[in-house]
Structure formats: structure tokens, C-alpha cells
Design a protein around this nucleic acid. Structure first.
Lengths: 113, 113
DNA sequence: CTGTATCCTCCCCGATACTG
DNA sequence: CAGTATCGGGGAGGATACAG
């Protein structure tokens, strides 16, 4: 399959490029993992879990993940506002594969003496 | 397993973070795919396959991939120089998983109407 | 509580020229 | 052929302040 990409010299259109574009960003994977682990999480909970993330990055990342249909945003119109995030089915199916990358890293990160 | 990371608030040390650090970079995955597809490839062949990559990026990426033991660099000392690159066993085991990301992308990139 | 808006910094990558 | 060196632009992300 990939050979076709090479012959067409069109790497930008590969499935892999597409997948990477969804999870590019310093914290997107961390957000997805948090949602996988805790199922339903509020904005401020995410902010507390991921101590080093800035407000801006968290907000932008969540918006993009939602636009890409990897996560679901549920808003409760009340004072003060409450918003819950969770994985979509699409997001869950992606996480099955990404989790294998996590495991691979665990196994191999001490390979090198 | 991931829950431990969250409780330790130490996302930088996750296996996934480690894995991503290996393949971060605009063209690293493309290089790995080329090596997977063609087995043994010379420097200039890579440059030709990946039309849009610059010399600097190709050189730097190859050096990092080699340092991380994902690829093997074999140099033939002669005039003019000849260098062949190929996947290491470690690289091949990673590619098995990355290839699944490629397939996921192929299947899902047209999900959204 | 859940965001936006602005400014600013750093670093990835491209373009280009040079070398053994 | 297979690199290395240097310069520079652009975009991702941080700090901070403000809003509904």
C-alpha cells in the first residue's frame, strides 16, 4: 500500500500523515490518555492532571480534538459553567493502536545500555 | 499502566512520550517507510524518493534515527563514498505498530462527511 | 469554571553554499 | 556521493490578563 505513495511521490496524503496530523501537538496524546483512563473529565480536572499544560494549549488542543471527532464535548448551561469531555468511538478505536505505541515504548526505552 | 503516570504526574516519562520522541520530525516516518519498503537504500536514493526534503533535514534525521538504533548505517570507504541505510530489528518492530496507524488513517480519513 | 486574546520566545526546518 | 555550516522565517506553545 505504501509503495503507491512513494510512486506518486505524495506523502502528504498517506493515511499515516493523516493520523499523525490528528495527534500532533505536545499534549494531545496526554489528553487522550487521560480521557481513556477516566472516561469523563471536566476542563479543570484535565488542567490539574496535566500540570504543565497552559490554558491556551489545553483549550486549543481540546477544540481541535473535538473538530476531528476524537472527543466529545458536553456542556451543561449553568452558572458556573460545567463542561465534560470524553472519548468518541472514533477516538477509542484510535487509542487501541496508540496504546500499543505506549507499550512498545515501555519495553524498548531501556534497550540502549 | 497509564494510571501510574497520571498519579505520578510524570507524562514526560511515559513509554508513549518516549516513542513519539523517536519519530518526531516532519520526515522521520517517511524515511522509515522508505526503508521498510526498499530494505536497503542509499543516501541519494532517499533524497530522490522524498522529493521535498532538504539535505539538512535528511542528514539530521538519519543521524538521529541511527543514534536511536532504529536504522543501520553502513559505509563503504571508497571514492566516491557509498552509504547504505536499512531498518534495524528495533526499527522493524516499531514499524509493525506504526503501519497500523497508517491503516487506521486510510480507513478513517474520510469518516467525516 | 471555562474559556479568549495578546504578546513573545524558542526551535524546527528550508535555502544555500561549501567540503573530502 | 554524502555530507557539514550558517542564516533566517514561521509556527507551536508559554505567560499573562481579561470575560461571561
Amino acid at each position: 500500500m505504501f509503495k503507491n505513495y512513494i510512486e506518486n511521490a505524495n506523502f502528504e496524503d498517506t493515511g499515516f500523515s493523516y493520523t499523525l496530523s490528528l495527534i500532533r501537538g505536545k499534549y494531545k496524546m496526554v489528553i487522550l490518555y487521560c480521557l481513556m483512563e477516566f472516561n469523563i473529565v471536566r476542563y479543570n480536572e484535565l488542567k490539574r492532571y496535566i500540570k504543565t499544560i497552559s490554558h491556551k494549549t489545553l483549550a486549543v488542543s481540546l477544540k481541535e480534538l473535538e473538530k476531528d471527532s476524537l472527543i466529545i464535548r458536553k456542556e451543561y448551561p449553568q452558572i458556573s459553567p460545567k463542561v465534560e469531555y470524553s472519548l468518541s468511538d472514533r477516538g477509542k478505536s484510535l487509542m487501541e493502536i496508540l496504546d500499543r505505541l505506549c507499550v512498545w515504548g515501555e519495553i524498548h526505552k531501556n534497550d540502549m545500555k
